[in-house]
C-alpha cells in the first residue's frame, strides 16, 4: 500500500473539516476525489502535503508504511509526495529554472543520486517541458509571476514532471482551464502516469475524468468519503448532481 488514511480528523483554525476520512491507494492507481465546494478536498490535499496551518486532530496516515504526519513538508516532498496547488503561489524574483533545479537537486541529494549543474538541468527541463507544451520562455520568468491561470496550472504539472513524484495530488488542476489547456494538462498527466506512481485527482467536475481515466472515484461530502466506485460514478454524479449523494448519505 502506498498511502493509507485511517479515520482522519483534521481542520483549520479550530474548525473540524475532515471527519473520519478513510482512503487506500496503491502504486499504479489513479484516484479521483470529487465533492462539492467546501467539502474539504483542499483540506485533505494540504494535510497530506503538511501545510502548517492545518491541524490533524486524530487518525493515521501511512505513506509507504511509515507515519507521514511526523514528517516536515519538505521531507514529504523529498520522499516523493507532490501537491499541485489549486492556487499556485507566485514567487517574485526567483526564476522557474533556478527554483526547479534547486528542488530537483535537493531530492537527488536526499536519495544519493547525482545532482545536475545548470547546463545539464536545462536540457532535462527542456525535455520535461515538452510534456506540457511549455516554451523555454517560461524558464527564465519568476515562478508563476504574471502567468495566466492556465499557465500556472501547466507550470504545476511541469514541476510534477521534473520532480517525478511517487504520489501526486492534483488539487483542481482542471479549474480555470479552457478546453485546449485542459487537453494539454490531461495529456501531460497521462504521460506521467506509471506503474511506479499514484495520482490523486481532486476535482469538482467530471470533465477532467474524460481525459484522465481514474481507477477509482471517491465522493467527499461533509468531511467524509460518502460514496465510492469506478469511473461510472463520476458520470452519475455529473447527471444527478451532488445533492444526490448528500441526500443519499443523510
Amino acid at each position: 500500500m502506498l498511502l493509507e488514511i485511517k479515520d482522519l480528523h483534521a481542520g483549520i483554525e479550530g474548525k473540524e473539516i475532515l471527519k473520519g476520512l478513510n482512503l487506500q491507494i496503491k502504486k499504479g492507481e489513479v484516484h479521483a476525489i470529487m465533492g462539492p465546494n467546501g467539502s474539504g478536498k483542499s483540506t485533505l490535499s494540504k494535510v497530506l502535503a503538511g501545510h502548517p496551518s492545518y491541524e490533524v486532530i486524530s487518525g493515521e496516515v501511512l505513506y509507504e508504511g511509515k507515519n507521514l504526519l511526523e514528517l516536515e513538508p519538505d521531507e514529504r516532498a523529498r520522499e516523493g509526495i507532490f501537491l499541485a496547488f489549486q492556487y499556485p503561489v507566485e514567487v517574485p524574483g526567483v526564476s522557474n529554472s533556478q527554483f526547479l533545479r534547486l528542488a530537483y537537486n535537493e531530492k537527488m541529494k536526499h536519495h544519493g543520486t547525482e545532482e545536475l549543474d545548470p547546463l545539464e538541468f536545462n536540457d532535462y527541463l527542456k525535455e520535461k517541458a515538452k510534456i506540457v507544451e511549455m516554451s523555454s520562455e517560461f524558464f527564465k520568468r519568476s515562478v508563476n509571476e504574471g502567468f495566466s491561470g492556465g499557465e500556472k496550472k501547466r507550470n504545476e504539472i511541469l514541476q510534477m514532471a521534473v520532480l517525478a513524484p511517487t504520489l501526486a495530488i492534483l488539487d483542481e488542476t482542471d479549474s480555470g482551464l479552457d478546453i485546449d489547456a485542459l487537453r494539454i494538462v490531461a495529456e501531460g498527466v497521462n504521460k506521467l502516469r506509471s506503474a511506479d506512481n499514484a495520482i490523486i485527482l481532486v476535482t469538482h467536475y467530471q470533465r477532467l475524468l474524460n481525459y484522465i481515466e481514474p481507477d477509482f472515484v471517491h465522493v467527499l461530502a461533509g468531511g467524509r468519503i460518502v460514496k465510492e466506485g469506478g469511473k461510472e460514478l463520476a458520470i452519475e454524479l455529473e447527471e444527478k448532481g451532488y445533492d444526490w449523494v448528500k441526500a443519499a448519505t443523510k
Binding site: H51, F85, V89, V91, Q98, F99, L102, S142
Partner: peptide
C-alpha cells in the same frame, strides 16, 4: 510570506534554503 514558504517547502527545499531563496527573490527585483 508563509504561503510562499510553504510552496517552496512542498517542492522539497529545506526551510533554510526556502527562506534564503525567497529573500534573494525579494532583493532581485
Amino acid at each position: 510570506e508563509e504561503e510562499e514558504l510553504f510552496y517552496l517547502l512542498s517542492r522539497g527545499l529545506s526551510e533554510t534554503l526556502a527562506r534564503n531563496l525567497l529573500t534573494y527573490g525579494f532583493a532581485e527585483e
